[in-house]
């Protein structure tokens, strides 16, 4: 099986996990809580724990379903905020933020 980085694909924009202090600045500028950001699907917490204790196969089978492949590639955890730098036809470049949820 060949491997390639999802982020290299033409239609996948740049994703980065944000630092805690960056998130604070972001939430302050928009005057919102974390929960009001757009979402992205992450790996379920409970499954993560199960995956470590029980055989890897079982954990992987459950956790991968419905999880955004980019989140898996970045290794983002629930509660992280991902900064997305979109290439926009109208603005050239635009920033978007997504909160990793279950």
């Amino acid at each position: 099986m060949r491997k390639f980085r999802l982020l290299d694909h033409n239609s996948v924009p740049k994703h980065e996990i944000m630092q805690e202090d960056e998130i604070k600045v972001l939430l302050n500028t928009y005057q919102i809580d974390k929960e009001r950001l757009p979402k992205i699907k992450g790996i379920k917490k409970s499954v993560e724990k199960v995956g470590k204790k029980v055989t890897k196969k079982v954990g992987k089978k459950i956790s991968d379903k419905g999880v955004d492949p980019v989140v898996i590639e970045l290794g983002a955890k629930i509660g992280d905020v991902i900064k997305i730098t979109r290439i926009s036809q109208t603005a050239g470049e635009s920033l978007y933020y997504r909160l990793v949820i279950e």
Partner: peptide
């Protein structure tokens, strides 16, 4: 499913 939500949006 393959490339994630941002690619789907695009």
């Amino acid at each position: 499913d393959v490339f994630g939500i941002e690619a789907a949006r695009n």
